[in-house]
Design a protein around this nucleic acid. Sequence first.
DNA 1: AAGATATGTCAGCTTTATTGACATAAATTT
DNA 2: AAATTTATGTCAATAAAGCTGACATATCTT
Lengths: 163, 163
Amino acid sequence: MSRQTGPKVSRPEPLATPMEDTDIIDFEIIELFFFAYRDFVSDPDAILEKSGFGRAHHRVVHFVNRNPGMTVADLLDTLKITKQSLARVLKQLIDSGYIRQVAGPEDRRQRKLYPTKSGRELALALAEPQSRRIERAFEGASAEVREGVKAFLSGMRDRQKAD
Amino acid sequence: MSRQTGPKVSRPEPLATPMEDTDIIDFEIIELFFFAYRDFVSDPDAILEKSGFGRAHHRVVHFVNRNPGMTVADLLDTLKITKQSLARVLKQLIDSGYIRQVAGPEDRRQRKLYPTKSGRELALALAEPQSRRIERAFEGASAEVREGVKAFLSGMRDRQKAD
DNA sequence: AAGATATGTCAGCTTTATTGACATAAATTT
DNA sequence: AAATTTATGTCAATAAAGCTGACATATCTT
């Protein structure tokens, strides 16, 4: 296929030894985290594709339900995506009747976002399998471990970057 | 803008109350997990974009380094993506000298994948900030909590689905 | 010899993101 | 009042990373 035709290039030797955890690198957790998240989002993904929505819609529905009245700017800040990326997704959710916009009572430039009843239901339906998965993962865990997991996940976040 | 022009459609009322944790839904962990993962992958993303690579390249480099000699089929299985999706990314990594293919010694149809020296270095460079983040998140955690976090992450994975 | 398997490749499509440019309405500053 | 800034929306083009379907090749198995 790519059978080395041109002038012979000396290619570096392949390494056969696996990369293991070292003093400085914790590959085990890195990998566990990857698999955990991959499967964690697969539940809602399966539900969403029936409605023609994707992961991006899920995030928007989730946060608007958690913080009704949040503005578009708040949402951009939370999701760390661009305005244009959000726009399409948000428009579809509004057109489908899952989210409503209301002009801000003080600042009328703002568009405050609220879930509708069906938006609330969608958010709950999406969260349910994830929540069951979490409960399963906690099976047999002590209260200390449960709190420890929360602290760990919280500690994985970026510290506030100047703004 | 989208100023309701046509026949008046009665739109559902917006809901103003936030969704809180219930007996059945654990929104807190769902959200912590989202933020944790978002920031966790942002470190390598920043490194990768300098080389013109993306998240997909990272995953391939990681797993080939962890399991040198794995085949293309193994990788497809691990990443749960399609052959065609993998092909483009893998080709770029091979062309750039980070990964080498070697025909299987027993089954010569197989292409066993190995990292080169620079492939190993890339994998380590990508893992390093993630590992520091993990260590930071574990600060002050007891051995029990550390084990509990691993068990939790492991428990979040899908159980084996029949194959 | 026939069929199955592992891989590669071509062509086209979709989703989710990106950037840049510009428009509008409302609030704020001068 | 005029100018500027802010919050939002929108148009156009692009990119990354996935997808499906179809087909080719080499190799192994029966």
